[in-house]
Each structure stands twice: as structure tokens, then as C-alpha cells.
């Protein structure tokens, strides 16, 4: 039953993930925390997101941790396949026919029109994580972490984001216990 729920939720999220992983985060958080019997609250969602950030590769492999939390290894497998397969099939099929639309002015219009929506969704994804990560008694320290990372990446020159994420973990170990 839970496997079917995972299949339903993550295959829907896969198709909705226009603009990539961050854009679908608010919807994922809503759907995951609304399934009460999955037992994932805001803080756990934040922890699972953080686990995903610690791994290499595509940034939404956190779905594996959600699946594992809900239904063990089978859950992890179902969530992984459900989240990635539909989008991958769409990508392969579309890339084969895409060439026929080359030069279509509508193709440019779609790209042009979707770009601000994707940025809006990514901002919404940032807010969704911020609402779980910058809360509680340590919220000011957490806000300071976020601000330092943002300033380093946005104004700094070619900082490695992975090192800043790891630094966040180390600083958390000392300051957030």
C-alpha cells in the first residue's frame, strides 16, 4: 500500500518537475508531509534534504531517503524509479522529435515564457527549505549560516559550493547542538 503511494506521489512529481529538482521541492514537501502515515515532519524533511545535499550527482536523490524512511529498501527503489523514470522517458522521446520543431517561433516563446516561472518555482523551493531549516531556537544561527553561504557564492569568485555545504555541517556540529 505504501509502495503504491510512493509510486503515485513520485511519478506525479517526476512529470511536474519542470525546471528541475528545486522547482518541485515545495510540492514534494507538501505531498510528503501531508501523508501522515509516512511519518515525515518538517524537521525530518529538512534532514532528508540535507542528506541529499551530502551526496554527489543529481540533487534530488533525496527521494531515495524518503522511500527508505517510508518502506525500507523496496520503498527507496520505488521512489527512485518513480521519480526518475517518467521524466527520463519523456526526455528521450522529446529529444528525438525536438529537431522537427527547430526554428519554430513557438519553441522560443515557450522557452522565454517558462524561464521566469522556473525562477519563481526555484525561489519557492528555497523558501520551502528555509521554512524547515531556519526555525526554532537556533534560527538566528541558521540564518547566519545561510547568509554566509549566499554571500560567498553570489559575490565570491568560484567558491566550491560542496565545501560550503560541508562547512555548514561542521559548524552545525559545534554550534547547533
Amino acid at each position: 500500500m505504501k509502495l503504491l503511494q510512493l509510486l503515485g506521489v513520485f511519478s506525479l512529481l517526476s512529470i511536474l518537475a519542470i525546471g528541475g529538482g528545486t522547482a518541485v521541492l515545495p510540492e514534494m514537501k507538501a505531498m510528503v508531509t501531508e501523508h501522515k502515515d509516512w511519518g515525515i515532519d518538517d524537521a525530518q524533511f529538512r534532514d532528508i534534504y540535507a542528506i541529499g545535499q551530502l551526496a554527489p550527482g543529481p540533487n534530488m536523490l533525496m527521494v531515495v531517503a524518503i522511500g527508505n524512511h517510508v518502506a525500507g529498501f523496496p520503498g527507496a527503489l520505488v521512489a527512485f524509479l518513480a521519480f526518475f523514470l517518467p521524466a527520463c522517458v519523456i526526455a528521450v522521446v522529446t529529444s528525438r522529435v525536438w529537431v522537427h520543431f527547430e526554428g519554430s517561433p513557438w519553441r522560443l516563446a515557450i522557452q522565454r515564457g517558462m524561464a521566469p516561472i522556473v525562477v519563481g518555482l526555484m525561489l519557492a523551493g528555497t523558501i520551502a527549505i528555509a521554512r524547515t531549516a531556519i526555525v526554532g531556537k537556533d534560527s538566528q544561527i541558521c540564518l547566519a549560516f545561510a547568509a554566509v553561504v549566499f554571500i560567498a557564492l553570489y559575490f565570491g569568485k568560484k567558491m566550491n559550493p560542496a565545501l560550503l555545504i560541508l562547512a555548514g555541517g561542521v559548524m552545525g556540529f559545534f554550534l547547533l547542538r
Binding site: 534532514d47 545535499q53 531549516a133
Partner: peptide, 17 residues
């Protein structure tokens, strides 16, 4: 505490990207 720190740092990363 580690995951909280990673989560907080991720917010800065997401905003910058």
C-alpha cells in the same frame, strides 16, 4: 546538529543559484 547546519547552508546555496 550536522544535518541542521547542512540544511541552513543549503538555503544560502539555493538562493545564490
Amino acid at each position: 546538529a550536522v544535518l541542521k547546519g547542512v540544511g541552513a547552508a543549503s538555503v544560502g546555496l539555493l538562493l545564490a543559484v
